[in-house]
Simulated assay, not measured.
Amino acid sequence: MAKSLFSAAIHQRNCQKEKNKAIGLSNWSHKNISMDKVTRYQEAILKVLNEYAKIKPSNIKNIENQVIADKANNHYQLMRVGWDKNEFIHDCVMHFDIKEEKVWIQCNWTDIDVAEELMSYGVARLDIVLGFIPENERALTGYAA
């Protein structure tokens, strides 16, 4: 019995290798495919954040945009830090997380559609979650629920 289960497992693995080879993934495992997807999504998020970080508010002189990237835990933010006259500014402008191979937009205090920007860099529409929308309303957004 154990030998037949082992043989079945070997056969299944070999069949998967053949399928992968047929579609050009000869030495890839499912884990590598997922890692590649997460890496692509990390790069897309960083492109959006770095592009927007170049834009500084014209009405606040002593402000700095900071891109915060925690790749190990998949947390990404654009922060605005500095002084506006006598008021200290410390604001999160954009916040993204990658959870279970989906990009979660946690906040976006800009007038750009960051979901569209992410899609232009290869993030699939159904891999984008609008985290700032209540869970029971996300199905209505056209993005992942």
Rank of each mutant, 00 (worst) to 15 (best):
D97I: 05
I60H: 03
R138L: 03
P134T: 09
V123D: 04
L118E: 09
S26Y: 03
I63D: 01
A115W: 11
K102R: 05
A115N: 09
Q12T: 14
R80D: 05
I68N: 10
L5E: 10
E64R: 02
F6Y: 00
I133M: 12
A72S: 15
L118D: 06
T39S: 15
N65M: 01
A72T: 14
N73Y: 12
W109Q: 06
E135L: 13
M1I: 08
I133G: 07
A44G: 10
I45C: 14
D111A: 03
E101M: 13
L5M: 08
D127I: 05
A53D: 02
N108V: 12
P134R: 08
I133Y: 08
N73W: 08
A69N: 04
E117R: 01
C92D: 02
Y121K: 00
H11W: 05
A115H: 07
M94D: 06
A53E: 02
S4A: 02
I63N: 00
L49Q: 06
E64F: 04
T110I: 07
N20R: 10
Q106P: 04
I105G: 06
V93P: 05
N73R: 08
A69S: 09
N32R: 09
T110F: 07
K17D: 05
E101V: 13
R80T: 03
I23W: 06
N20E: 08
S29F: 04
G142P: 08
P57K: 15
C92H: 02
L126M: 08
K56N: 07
N20L: 04
N73C: 09
V103K: 00
T110K: 12
K3A: 13
M79V: 04
A72G: 11
D91T: 04
Y121H: 03
E64K: 06
R125M: 12
C15N: 07
K37R: 14
E51K: 13
R125P: 08
D70P: 00
I98A: 01
Q12M: 15
A139S: 12
A8V: 01
M35W: 00
I89R: 14
V38Y: 00
H11P: 00
Y52N: 13
N59C: 12
S34N: 13
E51W: 13
R13C: 02
A115P: 11
Y121N: 00
G24A: 03
L49S: 03
N136P: 05
Y121T: 00
V48A: 14
K85H: 13
K85A: 14
Y143A: 01
I10W: 03
D70I: 00
K31H: 06
Q106K: 13
T141V: 10
R125K: 15
N74E: 08
T110R: 07
D113P: 03
I112W: 14
V123Y: 08
I55M: 06
Q16C: 06
A69I: 01
G122H: 03
L49C: 09
S58Y: 12
E87N: 10
R80H: 04
E51R: 11
K61S: 10
